[in-house]
Design a protein around this nucleic acid. Structure first.
Lengths: 141, 141
DNA sequence: TATTAAATAAAAATAGTTATCGTTTAGGAG
DNA sequence: CTCCTAAACGATAACTATTTTTATTTAATA
């Protein structure tokens, strides 16, 4: 696996402890955390870390294609180190956000490009519903 | 066509000029305006209209299924009186948001329900790209 | 028409995010 | 390795979208 420092350098970013921490945290989670969550997770081990820096860092990363921003309709944006366009499920009960991979979407891209006058660059598909865990809990209760 | 006043009454809402104005405005546009835009559009003809009321009204409408909230990644939410789940295209150049209808999505719902442990209630598909108008403008420039 | 709970406008408050500014630091030059 | 400088940092103020508060007005029913 490529070193985080190396990746940042390749993107023309100065390598700082804060940036390494944010990027590593995103690489090691599938939870799609928001800025606040990232900050709270890093604060204990990185005493010198500010929320403003997290926001600024995420903004740089986003522009350089190192992370993807995701808005599922909450107050705040979530972030994902998987930058390839991919759909997500959102459980409306527990709020859990999960990645999803569907080949069918490329067909849809093609169809829209052919039939409508619109060149698709990227798509965002969010499936809202109830996850298995919550459904089972509902039955029990 | 059913009267707006009648529709509001059926939903158990008190019929007020402000609510009628907001709902009619949304029925008569395909532009997916945000709260600010709705307010500015109505202010001239409805001198007694406040932004807070627009927000509150949209919130009621949303809960009662009269409108749909749409977040395409701008700072603010857009609103649509077409409440049936449907995809949208967003032009990243001019910001235009357009409705889209695709049958393929029901297949995707089914696939996710069958293969993953997730019950889909509603989906939001946003296709980001460049609309025909902007592509033509780019070629000219 | 009188009553009253609900809706309103205006303004204050809040949440998420961005900008400012003085200080610190990464990283290249010497 | 040390010096230098632009870039990054933390703290905090500012900003934007939205929500809440409160006193006033109004829709709808009696």
């Amino acid at each position: 696996m490529k070193e985080t420092a190396q990746i940042l350098k390749e993107k023309g970013l100065k390598v700082t402890p804060q940036r390494i921490a944010v990027y590593n945290m995103l690489l090691n989670t599938t939870e799609h955390p928001n800025a606040e969550t990232i900050y709270k997770a890093l604060e204990p081990t990185n005493p010198t870390m500010s929320l403003a820096t997290v926001y600024k860092t995420l903004d740089y990363f986003k522009q350089l294609g190192l992370v993807q921003e995701l808005n599922v309709g909450e107050g705040s944006s979530r972030y994902d180190a998987v930058v390839k366009c991919h759909p997500h499920t959102v459980c409306v009960q527990c709020g859990k956000v999960q990645d999803l991979y569907l080949d069918e979407l490329t067909e849809i891209h093609k169809k829209v490009e052919d039939e409508l006058d619109f060149q698709v660059n990227c798509e965002q598909l969010i499936l809202y519903g109830v996850c298995g865990n919550c459904r089972r809990k509902n039955k029990e209760g």
